[in-house]
Design a protein around this nucleic acid. Sequence first.
RNA 1: GCCCCCAUCGUCUAGAGGCCUAGGACGCCACCCUUUCAAGGUGGAGAUCACCGGUUCGAAUCCGGUUGGGGGCACCA
Length: 479
Amino acid sequence: MAPSPTGPLHIGTARTSLYNFLFARHVGGTYVLRVEDTDVARGTDAFERDIIDNLHWLGITWDEGPQVAGGEDIGPYAPYRQSQRMELYAREADRLLASGAAYRCYCTTDELEAVRHEQERNHEAPRYNGRCLRLSAADLATFLAEGRRPALRFKVPPEHIRFDDLIRGEVEFDNALLGDFVIVRGDGMPLYHFVVVIDDEAMGITHVVRGEDHLSNTPKHIALIRALGYREPRFGHIPLILNPDRSKMSKRKSQTAITAYREQGYLPEAMVNFLAFLGWSPGTEEEIFSLAELAERFEIGEVHKAGAVFDKDRLDYLNGVYIRSLNYTDLAARLRPFLPQALSDEQLVRLVPLLHERLVRLSDATELAAFLTETDAQVGALYEGDLLLPKGRSGAETAEALATAGEALAAAEWNGDGLEAAGRAAADAHGWKPGDFFRPIRVAVTGRLVSPPLFGSMELLGKEHTLARIGAAQARLGG
RNA sequence: GCCCCCAUCGUCUAGAGGCCUAGGACGCCACCCUUUCAAGGUGGAGAUCACCGGUUCGAAUCCGGUUGGGGGCACCA
């Protein structure tokens, strides 16, 4: 797996990493992580940290590669950051230059762009015209005098390239249609197509599993592999994850950063399960799988060919399933970052049973538990008086009901069961349906129409605040 | 423009010639349960298997074409 630290860990990169991981684990192979940081202009350490951190969060581990950002690399072919492997690339570039498989190109960006525009106007393929392949001595002298720094281009042999893709089967391309592409920039920085091929050979990579967007780049890589005399790995191109409009999933149209999902309270277990099934299925009707179970079942050849739309509703559903499967202790620990510091650990432990069946995301707990740490005044400010009223009941009637409720609850034993018994008896005595009778209490106590179970909530809030809030609501209705 | 890839309910998918009057899940709708919201239970709507032609006794499944969608064609990765 070879991510580029030009942004936070992307959903698509995460899934490609997952498939690589599952494939490697399933066949007992070695999973290698290599950081493709040759684009110094765009890459940053912060992004590398985000990628490594979130991969770990998902439970994806690698046998070789950087373990933590800035730390020691592990593996026999270290370093695993391309920015630290420049001598190797320079050596291979020289080799290509010496053999005549590559040549220096003095064209400027402007000149190249002009040619491209021209080609576009003539409805031709936008590819390099080969000008610097036969440069006159005079032109060369001029360019050198101008101080131009030449880029290095690979002279693409005009041959048919075919390979047997792990997922798509036989694929064939005609490299005669390709322009000679740049492998080393004028400033000496080697480019992606060149370095992947070198590192794959140097690191003993046997299987390259990557996104479908690289399918048509593969013939370039194979041509380079042949020119350099390397062994050809097997390639597997997995389908893309799509926006709802079926274009390649992008930041512009979808939320693509894994961190963002993590921050919203998605569980890594749910994310992994969801991602694995975007483009693969075990062929049965089972759908809940742990990472270990996935590794056991996953077959690279079963991966689909068609792209899959990212379905947030399905992720939400799975996340709920996983949250509900957590035991209370575990859930409490995971909920902690989403709840205010003011909420004590003891309160948290008692709150968890009230929430565990009501959460789609861990962050949903923030709103559900807010009434516990808000002041009485803050809660009172959350609602209009009308919100207290059950359907068809007046303010005066509701104030009366609240008064009855307040008295009954004040006399009750202050725990969920005691409060519920008192509340129900009071509702019955008052002649109101429980739903109607409890509504103003819920709004008074939590400030909201939706809350965790009422009696457990009151128990947690405590007698003093509960009765004060009921009294305040009653007063507001003029009771 | 050229090259490549793809095509089953809205979405994720099962399906590898007869088991399919196409199965499951999410979402949606209804009902049940119910102190709100969820969760749970039951039921329902939803796919002429993109289209056309062929092979075959028989095709969602094999072949060809068409259409549609996607990706690539950078001194980005």
